[in-house]
Design a protein around this nucleic acid. Structure first.
Lengths: 218, 218
DNA sequence: TATTATTTTAAATAAGCGTTTAATTTAATT
DNA sequence: AATTAAATTAAACGCTTATTTAAAATAATA
């Protein structure tokens, strides 16, 4: 069984290169030649190690997301009995971190955005598995803030208002005005999460006051 | 000079077909074959009438946006001295209309979203011309709500919070839960604009109260 | 060292794409 | 009706892709 003379693992090399390129260009616009050049390997290596461009993409997605969630868990290490307000802030902050992180292993946010923009049907279930828990967590936080006598639609609307604010800044990163674009990432995440949390808590409170209370069963 | 025997204008046919296909698939994924088949014309017709796929796209973009703005003007016919709260609501409602309209001439929203996702550099200035006035309008509304002693970043953050909420629903249209997906479009727009306006006005008010007031010159 | 399994390579393959071409058809003009 | 200009067509071109192939190189095993 032939191993490389240098210590490098070609498969890992390819995965890393592919992550970088997919995050920057999205699935359609990246070519396997591009990936292989970045990985300094032959054009055939993608198919040799991963079977196809598509399967490589699936692995990139899984790995990137696992890394991002490990690095910035949605609860940010908070105890489950923490006040909903704080859990909301932690959720927002971790999502922003994942969105704006473009470091070694932090391409997940950009890949997610690329996926939202150009859905790749093949990894539908993979996406679902990764995103569903997050959506449920968000819903439960909002539920707690709104009280449990509020209708389903209101719940969804508020959850989406929060998430869309975070996602939006992911999309517009790089198109921000200079004074914000040049900020250090952690500083930017702090400012944004402060703003979005403040904005959203007030929004949710207003919705709670205004909504016609449609009691749910049990 | 040969004109068609039937009353149809091939160029208009192509423009319409292209609008439909571009809106559904985005620039990269639509093929000229696809467009020509939809328009029931020959593959060469795109280049004959428009020079290239790219020039056709530019025309599609301009026409779609012009139509959308005419149909749903950002001020919704409001007088300029209307209260900022009402102007905000009108802005939100018109943006949502443009986003969610998928009728004959209402593909602008989808094309805009596709553009945000996969920017086509060639039409950068066209986009700027179409979008800049809207952004300025949004900023001035938020300015009015926050008072003019608030710093630039706060202004931008609030404006983005509003716009991203609207855009988000554009992206997720079709992925909404059944009870919302099946709603008539006007009804959905009404519900969403009610929610986003309520949510955002409260958010902005909270930001206004909290922000350290950084006075601007003059 | 000889053999075997694995990895790497350059080149070929085949399909999809936007665009061009050159011939044909259609309509307007004289 | 004859001539000319415009529109339409089928086919081909040239380029970029992902993938395959088959040979060469490399490492492991006996």
């Amino acid at each position: 069984m032939g191993k490389r003379k240098d210590g490098l693992d070609r498969k890992a090399q390819l995965l890393e290169a592919a992550t970088k390129v997919f995050a920057r260009k999205g699935y359609d616009k990246t070519t396997v030649v591009d990936i292989c050049q970045t990985a300094k390997s032959n054009t055939a290596s993608v198919n040799y190690y991963f079977g196809s461009k598509e399967e490589l993409y699936a692995e990139v997605w899984k790995a990137a997301f696992q890394n991002a969630i490990e690095k910035y868990p949605p609860d940010m290490g908070l105890l489950p009995d923490t006040a909903a307000e704080d859990r909301l802030k932690a959720f927002i902050k971790s999502l922003l971190h994942r969105m704006l992180d473009s470091g070694e292993l932090g391409y997940a946010g950009q890949i997610l955005l690329m996926e939202m923009a150009n859905p790749t049907e093949t990894i539908d279930h993979i996406k679902r598995d990764a995103i569903d828990p997050m959506r449920k967590r968000m819903m439960s936080i909002v539920q707690q803030l709104l009280g449990n006598s509020v209708c389903e639609e209101t719940l969804i609307f508020c959850a989406m208002s929060v998430i869309h604010q975070c996602m939006g800044f992911g999309f517009r990163r790089g198109k921000l005005p200079p004074q914000l674009r040049e900020l250090e990432k952690n500083r930017l995440v702090d400012m944004l999460s402060e703003h979005i949390t403040l904005f959203s808590l007030a929004g949710i409170a207003a919705v709670k006051e205004t909504t016609v209370q449609t009691p749910q069963r049990a």
